[in-house]
Deep mutational scan, measured.
Amino acid sequence: ELREAFAKVDTDGNGYISFNELNDLFKAACLPLPGYRVREITENLMATGDLDQDGRISFDEFIKIFHGLKSTDVAKTFRKAINK
């Protein structure tokens, strides 16, 4: 299930999730959020999830993000976006 969610976000299939891919995910989900809020959520996920600070999120980092977000608003938003 997590591998499928990761693949859905990794639209270019390079094995990593970029800032733009995350941002595009939230935009495509048509969530009722202003653009600046989408950017804040994306920046927050990148800042906390990109553990090796290479500017992208690997599958291992994605798993840690996903499990670390349990019930936060960001987690709910992220799950809604993935499930669209």
Rank of each mutant, 00 (worst) to 15 (best):
S71R: 10
R56E: 10
V9D: 00
Y36E: 15
K76L: 09
K8L: 12
R79N: 14
L33G: 04
R56Q: 13
R37S: 09
V9H: 03
K84D: 15
L31V: 12
Q53I: 08
L31M: 15
Q53W: 05
Q53H: 14
D50H: 06
L45Y: 12
Y16T: 05
F26T: 01
H67G: 08
V74W: 11
A5V: 02
V74T: 13
L33R: 03
K8A: 06
D50T: 13
H67A: 10
L31Y: 10
T42M: 12
K8D: 04
Y16V: 03
A29F: 06
S18M: 11
G35P: 14
A81P: 15
R79S: 15
N14I: 02
K8T: 07
F78P: 15
F78W: 12
L31G: 09
D54C: 09
E4D: 07
R56V: 07
K84G: 15
K80V: 09
C30A: 15
K84R: 13
T11Q: 08
K84A: 15
K64E: 08
E61G: 08
Y36V: 11
D24E: 13
E40F: 01
E1K: 06
R56A: 07
D54Q: 10
P34C: 04
E4L: 07
F62D: 00
N23F: 08
T11W: 02
S18C: 09
A81F: 05
I41E: 03
C30D: 15
L2N: 04
G55S: 07
E61T: 11
F62E: 00
A29K: 05
P34A: 06
F6I: 01
D24K: 10
L31H: 13
S58A: 02
R39M: 05
L69D: 08
K64V: 02
S58P: 02
Y16C: 02
G15W: 01
H67Y: 07
A75K: 12
T72R: 10
P34E: 09
G55W: 03
D12E: 09
F59W: 06
G35E: 15
I65A: 13
R56I: 04
F66Q: 02
P34L: 03
L2M: 04
A28D: 07
K64F: 01
K64M: 03
T42Y: 11
H67I: 06
N23A: 14
A47Q: 13
P32S: 09
E21D: 08
I17H: 00
R56Y: 11
P34T: 04
K70D: 11
V9A: 09
K70P: 09
A81L: 05
V74L: 10
G13P: 01
I41M: 07
Q53G: 09
